[in-house]
Design a protein around this nucleic acid. Structure first.
Length: 429
DNA sequence: TCTGGGGTCCTATTCCTA
DNA sequence: TCTGTAGGAATAGGACCC
């Protein structure tokens, strides 16, 4: 067994407790506090009352009215996440990060240096506790998905009676996989969500063991060739996926749910410019450009549509992405009211070759053309003076003429869990 | 109870082209 | 030029994950 899954416990909430010790032992909920917000993370004390991540904040509040609600500080979590991954990198270069607070490690080659895998798991937990002040749970197994389920089994448990500490490390020795897996509920499997669970329940499947008893052909017929064969393999403990250290980004997007639905096409188009500008900024920072631009619209009733278009050459400026996004939006009915708007770019690759120009300013590697040069300048200004120092004129807040505080830009992680408040002016002025 | 934001992967359909 | 078709790319949507 040489695959480890390391998972920080209640990550965002634990960071808040770390930074404010007066919160220790309390129910702490991090997430969007507004009417449309959701829970991003919560302490085990809050879980005693049935609070879970991804739950609407309103429901969390009614379940646990005495909880401390915090908006979350994404930049701080990113910083702690970097340190977390730094600790892991000290044990092996074979680290596959899958979230801010979660990673797989292949320690097959690290055992000569650090001892057998279970010992490495213990050393990692100790290092994370000492260097970060956070608790981690570690699963050790022969495959990724069993290691993942083992780390889950190693976590603390919260019930109405109280919080019971977890084992910290759970090892599933090779040969013991089926004994460990088969009693677990199918929903524990990676890839089994509400939709797949409902279909499996029609076959009377509740546990992984019962899933294993279903013939592959039956699974393939109901779940499709890919998912059917995959789940059948997992139920029998087979998972050939290797730990992959560096995986390329496939898409970059921004989306936002508004505290009030947008009805005015001008408002929606302005928001598209703002989101496009944020996406473009991130693309250029990553040295990427994309050929497919996608817009996403969620209506009042939660129905969601996407429209996309593939363009040539690849784009990486706010102007080009916004132009494509607005063209797509032109064919979309906005009259039911827009709850969420998103802009994304995929089909990523190298930025297009920069157009040769006699103008020396173009020689610096900024995107081509006048807008490209503007984008290059915007990047340099933002690098020096901050994200909201410059931006498209269309985004100037008419209520705040002049001051830079009136520029509404998108920064990653600004409102990651929904509108912070239900406030703000309803549309239509 | 009323559902975030950032992603990945899969599937079905449509459209284009050889 | 017309017709049929096979296959790939583009498009749309859905499920799932943290």
């Amino acid at each position: 067994v040489s695959v480890l899954h390391v998972d920080l416990d209640a990550f965002f909430a634990a960071v808040e407790v770390l930074d404010d010790p007066s919160l220790r032992g309390k129910a702490v909920i991090v997430g969007g506090a507004g009417a449309r917000g959701v829970v991003a993370a919560c302490t085990y004390e809050a879980r005693r009352y049935g609070v879970r991540s991804a739950m609407p904040s309103l429901r969390a509040r009614s379940l646990c009215p005495h909880a401390v609600f915090l908006p979350g500080r994404y930049a701080r979590y990113e910083e702690m996440s970097r340190r977390f991954h730094g600790v892991l990198a000290g044990f092996t270069p074979l680290v596959e990060g899958i979230a801010l607070d979660e990673a797989f490690l292949d320690v097959a080659g690290a055992q000569r240096l650090f001892g057998p895998a279970p010992a490495i798991a213990g050393r990692i937990r100790a290092a994370i506790a000492n260097e970060l002040g956070l608790q981690a749970s570690v699963g050790v197994a022969s495959t990724k998905f069993v290691a993942k389920l083992a780390s889950e089994a190693a976590k603390p448990r919260a019930s109405r009676q109280g919080v019971t500490p977890g084992a910290g490390v759970v090892v599933v020795e090779s040969g013991e996989e089926l004994r460990f897996l088969h009693p677990l509920p199918v929903a524990a499997l990676w890839g089994v969500g509400p939709a797949t669970l409902a279909r499996l329940e029609r076959f009377g499947v509740a546990t992984i063991g019962q899933l294993a008893a279903i013939p592959v052909d039956t699974l393939v017929a109901t779940l499709g060739p890919s998912a059917g064969a995959h789940l059948h393999d997992l139920a029998w403990g087979r998972d050939p996926r290797p730990v992959e250290p560096a995986r390329a980004v496939k898409s970059i997007s921004h989306e936002q749910t508004y505290p009030y639905d947008l009805f005015d096409r001008g408002d929606v188009e302005r928001e598209a410019v703002r989101l496009a500008d944020g996406v473009a900024s991130r693309l250029r920072r990553s040295g990427l450009a994309g050929r497919t631009v996608t817009v996403k619209v969620r209506y009042q009733d939660f129905a969601t549509i996407t429209r996309s278009e593939t363009v040539t050459p690849a784009v990486d400026t706010g102007v080009a992405i916004a132009r494509a996004a607005q063209a797509l939006l032109a064919a979309v009915d906005l009259s039911p009211g827009v709850r969420l708007l998103g802009v994304g770019v995929s089909n990523l690759g190298e930025p297009p070759p920069r157009q040769l120009s006699l103008d020396l300013a173009d020689a610096e590697g900024a995107p081509a053309g006048p807008w490209g040069r503007a984008a290059g300048a915007v990047d340099r200004i933002r690098a020096r003076y901050g994200e909201s120092a410059v931006g498209p004129a269309a985004l100037l807040d008419p209520d705040e003429p002049g001051g830079t505080g009136g520029l509404r830009t998108v920064r990653r992680g600004v409102a990651p869990w929904g509108p912070a408040s239900s406030g703000g002016a309803p549309p239509g002025r």
